[in-house]
């Protein structure tokens, strides 16, 4: 990120009123399955998520941002690319719910043709994030960074709430992933310079399974 662009920091702020607080990025089902019980487990989980779902989201966000900077008309084709990379129906629902909320927050904050082009739709979250980043004056690299970063911090925050983890220790763990986040964002931004069909599609079979298990669970605090 260009460092101190406050408009972009707004998009990475966990207080952005865009519905993210109700999504755990798979952490709640991982906790329910006993796969995440402490800060060390959380770090392992988040590192795997970042390199798979996080990379895909970052690349889609970067591609959406690059598209928004041009003569942005329809995002349908990119949204279809996001669908094709999201085989889990529960994850598609979660991505669209968050995309819809982010689009609302972005349209209430900035005016931009890309946001207008998406109006009335519930795009995948990375597509909305890319458009919102463009509207806030950022570029594809910024969109990728914000996507990769918020993917990690959202899960970390959920773990603090679900397990009563020490927030200071979790913050240190997230800081320990900073270089990985930057590397994923850089790869994603690079990939977004190529054709959409070739964007990363890294899968995480356990995340997909968790997403579906969670959608069918009786007891859950988070939407996803």
């Amino acid at each position: 990120m260009a460092g101190t662009d406050a408009a972009l920091l707004l998009l990475a702020d966990s207080r952005l009123p865009a519905g993210g607080h109700a999504h755990s990025g798979g952490v709640e089902p991982a906790v329910a399955a006993g796969a995440v019980t402490d800060v060390a487990d959380l770090t392992v989980f988040l590192r795997g998520r970042l390199a798979t779902a996080g990379l895909v989201a970052a690349a889609l966000a970067a591609a959406a941002c690059a598209h928004a900077a041009g003569p942005a008309d329809a995002f349908d084709a990119l949204d279809a690319e996001a669908d094709a990379r999201t085989p889990s129906p529960a994850q598609r629902r979660a991505a669209r719910a968050q995309g819809r909320s982010l689009l609302r927050a972005a349209r209430a904050t900035w005016a931009h043709p890309a946001l207008d082009a998406l109006a009335g739709t519930a795009p995948h979250h990375p597509v909305a994030l890319g458009a919102a980043t463009a509207a806030a004056g950022g570029g594809p690299g910024d969109a990728a960074s914000i996507a990769a970063f918020t993917g990690v911090t959202g899960g970390a925050s959920a773990a603090v709430r679900l397990l009563g983890l020490d927030p200071l220790a979790v913050n240190r763990a997230v800081a320990g992933l900073a270089a990985d986040i930057d590397a994923v964002a850089a790869r994603a931004a690079d990939a977004a310079r190529g054709p959409w069909a070739e964007l990363p599609a890294a899968s995480a079979p356990v995340l997909d399974l968790y997403a579906e298990l969670h959608a069918g669970a009786d007891l859950r605090l988070f939407e996803s």
Binding site: A18, G19, H21, A22, S24, A105, A158, L162, E223
Partner: peptide, 21 residues
């Protein structure tokens, strides 16, 4: 039914997205 991510206040006050949806 809306889920609030363990933060019922947040869902009605700070980030009302899910309720608006």
């Amino acid at each position: 039914a809306v889920r609030t991510g363990a933060c019922p206040h947040t869902a009605i006050r700070d980030d009302i997205s899910a309720n608006l949806d």
